[in-house]
Computed example of a mutant assay.
Amino acid sequence: MKSLVIANGSMDDYDFYKNIIKENYDCIICADGASNHAYNMNITPDIIIGDLDSIDDKVKKHFIDKNIEFNKFPSKKDKTDTEICIDYAIDIGSKKIDFIGVLGNRMDHSLANINILYSLLKKGIKSRIINENNEIYITDNKIQITGKKGDIVSVVPIYSDVLGVTLKGLEYPLNNYNLKFSASIGVSNIMLDDKCEISLKSGCVLVIKSRD
């Protein structure tokens, strides 16, 4: 099962996101005020989850009239609305989870949401974050990225040094390279074709395909 979680972060180009949502998702989950984004894109979610304090009244009525399920949680809780949406996605059997609207001006929320990719990785769930300029993945083993020639791909170590990094299909390849935590050597590589491969022996990296 493949689910989409829509959060209430920055989403400027609704046409871009509507094209993303045209992909075959089994379940679309809105985190609280993200239902405003869904309404503006004429997207109907399967469920709206959160404390429901950020939804415009007309949007709430619109989705109530469409018999969309609401799952209300207290405003004071130990998890963000996005995390509660993830719990729901896992409970219904999602093996792949995409996220939109999880990045924005609030750096604390953005970093916390990026870190969520790590917890999903450890649960064996494939995930990615998408916005108008970036696709963010995570791996502790091997990943293949698809795109087009000239796309920018960065490999960023997180949490610790990364051992045995090999990059294929990129302008600046690496072979069994030990990439130190906070090193910038993996930033702004360039795809040579429509796919590239990143593998490592130990550690964990974010893989970010970027558009200027």
Rank of each mutant, 00 (worst) to 15 (best):
I55F: 12
S210T: 09
T80K: 04
G150I: 02
L103T: 15
N189H: 05
N105W: 13
I43S: 10
D108G: 09
F70M: 09
S182V: 13
H62K: 08
E23Y: 04
Q144L: 07
D12I: 08
I158K: 02
I136C: 04
I92R: 12
V59N: 02
S182G: 11
I86Q: 05
I152Q: 03
I130Y: 11
C85R: 01
G101A: 12
L111W: 11
L120M: 07
N133D: 11
Y17D: 04
D212A: 14
V5H: 01
I64F: 10
I125W: 01
M1V: 14
L170N: 01
N19Y: 06
D15Q: 13
P157K: 04
I125E: 00
K126Q: 08
Y88T: 08
D56Q: 13
D51S: 00
I29N: 00
Y177A: 01
F181E: 03
G9V: 08
K58L: 14
G104F: 04
N131L: 06
H37C: 06
V5Q: 01
D12L: 08
R106L: 15
L179D: 01
D53T: 15
P157L: 03
G101I: 10
M191G: 05
V207I: 15
E171D: 14
P157I: 00
Y172H: 09
L121H: 12
A112H: 13
Y17N: 08
D53E: 10
A7D: 07
G33C: 11
V165Q: 03
M11T: 07
K123Y: 12
I49N: 03
I43R: 12
G169R: 07
A34K: 05
K95H: 08
D15R: 13
I136P: 00
T166S: 13
I28F: 03
F70I: 09
M191W: 06
D57P: 00
I185M: 12
V155Q: 07
K77I: 05
V205G: 09
S202F: 15
I21V: 13
L170A: 04
K168M: 10
V187I: 15
Y17M: 10
D78P: 05
N141P: 00
T139H: 08
K96L: 06
I6D: 01
D26C: 02
P45R: 07
I55N: 02
F73R: 01
I84C: 07
I68V: 15
F73A: 04
I100G: 00
K142P: 00
K122M: 15
T44A: 05
T146A: 11
N105E: 13
D46Y: 05
I125L: 02
N134C: 09
S35D: 01
N113Q: 09
G164P: 08
I116L: 15
N42D: 15
I49A: 06
G186E: 04
D140G: 10
D12Q: 12
K72T: 07
K66I: 00
G147C: 04
G186Y: 08
Y25Q: 06
L170C: 02
K96R: 10
G104M: 11
L174R: 06
I130W: 12
P173W: 08
V155E: 00
L120G: 00
K142Q: 13
K61L: 09
T82L: 06
S210A: 13
I143P: 03
I86P: 05
R211K: 14
V187A: 03
